[in-house]
């Protein structure tokens, strides 16, 4: 056997052993010998599944992943506190609510630090934590619900394209981009949005210890800068992640603590780079599925 081949085989063997050990190490709940504070970055739009990207990672905030992470942190006794570093303009309603609910079930001291923006669904998540920090210039609030879709009926009319769809329920094709909304449908969708808005307001009021009336006054969809938000009771203190961590150490009376930034769990597929092909495949799959959907109405917080 040529010597180069032997060296390559040996290095591949070392890599594979490391790969297997890494796989088990990352799937072990207890990852520290001492107390630790976890920093969990939440960056991007909030959805239930996140968005696979071409580089094998997942961009945006996946509520499925975050809820799983919070459950894991709950079980990890070495974790004494969690700081959620939020940089999100919001996202889908259910995903925001799922993460908010999971945070409320977190049995560790938890803070939110709003970086550039923690608005709408991003603020919903922040409000579920024990304490909110932000920069005086951070964008926050924007408590409101948005329902939107693209409507092409005018374009179709211009080019002589007719829309025909057979539906069995009156509202089944409400929100299709191929026809204009009638008054009835508009009222129906608005009522759903109002319901979600009420729920959102109640959640924030409950989370922040404010009355529903107080939050309702702020819940116009307006965004507030951090310096305004402190006065309005939407943010507790000014500070960045370091300030939050220091304050958490003081609150928990921790002198020797390991501060760790959470990284996404890495599976064998991730390590081998297989996610690249998965993400590409999923991108194509998603396109096909969304093409099939007749209704593209989307509600976001």
């Amino acid at each position: 056997m040529k010597k180069w081949v032997f060296i390559v085989i040996l290095l591949v063997l070392l890599y594979l052993v490391s790969l297997v050990v890494a796989f088990f190490a990352f799937n072990n709940n207890s990852k520290s010998f001492g107390d630790k504070i976890m920093i969990v970055p939440l960056e991007g739009a909030i959805t239930t599944s996140g968005n696979g990207d071409l580089f094998g990672g997942s961009s945006g905030i996946s509520s499925t992943e975050v809820v799983k992470l919070i459950n894991d942190l709950n079980k990890d006794e070495s974790v004494k506190g969690v700081v959620f570093e939020i940089n999100s303009p919001g996202g889908t309603v259910v995903a925001s609510q799922e993460i908010g609910d999971a945070i409320k079930k977190l049995n560790k001291t938890n803070y939110a630090v709003i970086r550039e923006v923690g608005a709408s669904g991003g603020y919903w998540i922040a409000s579920a934590t024990d304490k909110i920090y932000s920069s005086p210039m951070s964008i926050t609030g924007s408590i409101g619900v948005l329902g939107s879709y693209l409507e092409f009926s005018g374009l179709f009319e211009k080019y002589g394209v007719d829309y025909e769809q057979l539906v069995s329920g009156k509202y089944k094709d409400t929100g299709t981009p191929f026809k204009d909304l009638d008054e009835d449908e508009r009222r129906l969708l608005q009522s759903k949005i109002n319901l979600i808005h009420e729920y959102f307001v109640k959640e924030v009021a409950n989370n922040r210890g404010l009355t529903v009336e107080e939050v309702s006054k702020l819940a116009t969809g307006e965004f507030y800068l951090g310096q305004e938000a402190v006065g309005l009771g939407l943010v507790d203190e000014f500070g960045d992640v370091d300030v939050a961590v220091e304050n958490m150490k003081t609150e928990l009376n921790l002198t020797k603590v390991d501060v760790q930034r959470h990284f996404k769990d890495i599976g064998l597929l991730d390590i081998l780079g297989g996610r690249i092909f998965y993400a590409m495949g999923r991108g194509v799959g998603d396109s096909l599925v969304s093409y099939e959907l007749s209704n593209n109405f989307e509600i976001r917080a």
Partner: peptide, 17 residues
Amino acid sequence: IVNLVVSLPFYNYLISL
């Protein structure tokens, strides 16, 4: 060489530290 080969599966983790 050995450090690179062995640390490769831990790349994301090391960056996160």
